[in-house]
């Protein structure tokens, strides 16, 4: 069995699902991260506690459990029959990593020296302007490497969606394996290489982000 002519074409059929789920859940998680991260820093105690609850629930349990739970609960809660579980995969991965990343957002903002905010106050900036022009641009640089790392984790997480019936790269690999048991090792290795190739650009972007974060912040 030839990995390039026999296995790869089969796996490519699942590439669309894997990549679209990754992109959609990454965007969703980034949005959640900023919303939740800023809510955690809010002066409103209710908002802070409520967001804290979301974060601890999703960080304190497993992605696979959340995925299954939402798979059974979403159709009931919203009384709908989804044409595909794609959206469930995106919601589960997005909420899970949104929770982790919100702590990155919060930590980066808190790590900016208080003198920065004081200087902005001395220039009579409003609290929004302090955030927008002074704190945020610096905090973003510090967040980038962790966002890269977590995006790689999300890619790994997408392999779970085959468990709720989505036809991703892992799904097609596993189908092939079930009809070619003797070639199982080769098939799985090719599947893993597929994921690694998808991860490579993320790995390089993360390293780049690390080097940027390392230099840009000294006062």
């Amino acid at each position: 069995m030839n990995p390039i002519t026999d296995i790869a074409p089969q796996l490519i059929r699942g590439l669309g699902t894997t990549v679209t789920i990754l992109i959609a859940s990454a965007i969703f998680s980034y949005v959640m991260a900023f919303i939740a991260g800023l809510c955690r820093l809010s002066k409103n105690i209710f908002l802070r506690k409520f967001t804290g609850l979301y974060i601890e629930i999703f960080r304190g349990t497993s992605l696979i459990v959340q995925l299954f739970w939402l798979y059974y609960a979403i159709p009931i809660l919203f009384d709908i029959n989804l044409p595909s579980n794609w959206i469930i995969g995106v919601i589960a991965i997005g909420l899970n990593y949104g929770a982790y990343l919100s702590e990155v957002v919060r930590g980066s903002i808190l790590s900016i020296a208080p003198g920065q905010s004081e200087a902005a106050t001395a220039l009579n900036m409003s609290s929004f302007q302090r955030m927008r022009f002074v704190i945020f641009p610096q905090a973003i640089r510090m967040m980038m490497p962790e966002f890269g790392n977590y995006t790689i984790q999300m890619l790994k997480g997408t392999a779970l969606v085959s468990l709720i019936g989505l036809r991703d790269v892992f799904y097609y690999g596993d189908i092939m394996r079930s009809t070619n048991l003797a070639h199982a090792p080769l098939i799985y290795v090719v599947v893993l290489v597929f994921y690694f190739i998808l991860a490579l650009p993320l790995i390089f972007l993360t390293r780049k982000a690390e080097s940027i974060a390392k230099k840009g912040v000294a006062n």
Binding site: A113, G115, Q116, E118, A119, A120, A122, L123, N124, M125, S126, Q129, F133, V134, P137, Q138, R141, G216, V217, A218, N219
Partner: peptide, 23 residues
């Protein structure tokens, strides 16, 4: 300030220009 508190992500000129424009 004692510790300058310049904005490290801006050039010297941008450090000076941001507040008059935005504020």
């Amino acid at each position: 300030f004692q510790h300058f508190n310049l904005f490290p992500h801006m050039t010297i000129l941008e450090n000076c220009m941001t507040a008059p424009i935005r504020v």
